[in-house]
Write a protein that binds this DNA or RNA. Structure first.
Length: 229
DNA sequence: ACGTGATCATTT
DNA sequence: AAATGATCACGT
């Protein structure tokens, strides 16, 4: 097992080492078998890079590198570097939200500093042949945080006011709520229309593709600017 | 059941 | 083709 990076610099150095390599090469180095497809291994890429970078295994609601204050997110991209999927952030709390504010929310906590690692994700490319891209260490700027906060507030208001069943993935400019469960049978408690307790499907917060696309794109622009052209 | 890692697959 | 809604696996 690889030990956790001692600081941000070491984490970034490790991420730079695998940029350009295929998932098959990384897996081989770690003696991990590559699945033919991800139909039954949806989190495989994320787990592979977590292992390589020395992230804590486990399912605690914490950042992957809590000692560095950094969350790791692998993101599948197409040939142009555009996201192929939305990005899951965390489970949406449907109960016990008294006193919870944006500043104390799990969404803000998870997104305060994220190491994005784009990975080729087109299904036409064999999993073992998909290449790892350059990592991007990102923190939301004030504009991005304001939009996130607004969306979060709107969605949380509905949850608190017993309108969870009316929440749709169509809501939220950059942050949306969608089902997040093992299957359609999973149920959890939530506030009903009359303030009573109801059972509903678990939900999660996700970032829309346009938002993450902007993060990846703006990084490229800032790099070009800083290195001159 | 919940939270971690997400992508799949049906609908629009 | 894109987006929404549904689902898969694992550890606790």
């Amino acid at each position: 097992m690889i030990s956790p990076p001692v600081n941000e610099q070491e984490l970034l150095a490790r991420a730079n080492l695998i940029a350009g390599y295929t998932l098959g090469e990384v897996a081989s180095y770690l003696n991990i078998t590559v699945p033919a497809d991800l139909k039954r291994d949806k989190g495989w890429v994320g787990n592979l890079l977590e292992t390589y970078l020395g992230a804590k295994a486990g399912s605690k609601p914490e950042q992957d590198f809590a000692h560095l204050g950094i969350e790791l997110k692998t993101i599948p991209v197409d040939a142009k570097g555009h996201p192929l999927e939305t990005t899951f952030i965390c489970v949406a709390p449907l109960m016990a939200n008294h006193g919870v504010t944006w500043d104390s929310s799990h969404v803000k906590y998870k997104l305060q500093k994220v190491l994005w690692i784009p990975v080729e994700g087109e299904r036409t490319i064999r999993v073992a042949e998909r290449r790892v891209g350059s990592a991007i260490l990102w923190s939301p700027d004030s504009e991005q945080e304001n939009i996130l906060k607004q969306d979060w507030q709107e969605l949380m208001d509905m949850i608190v006011l017993g309108q969870i069943e009316k929440v749709t993935a169509r809501q939220g400019e950059v942050l949306q709520i969608r089902p997040k469960a093992a299957n359609g049978q999973a149920l959890t408690e939530a506030i009903g229309e009359d303030g009573n307790i109801i059972l509903t499907r678990p939900r999660g917060f996700y970032l829309r593709k346009q938002f993450t696309a902007d993060i990846l794109h703006n990084y490229v622009r800032s790099k070009m600017t800083s290195s001159g052209s």
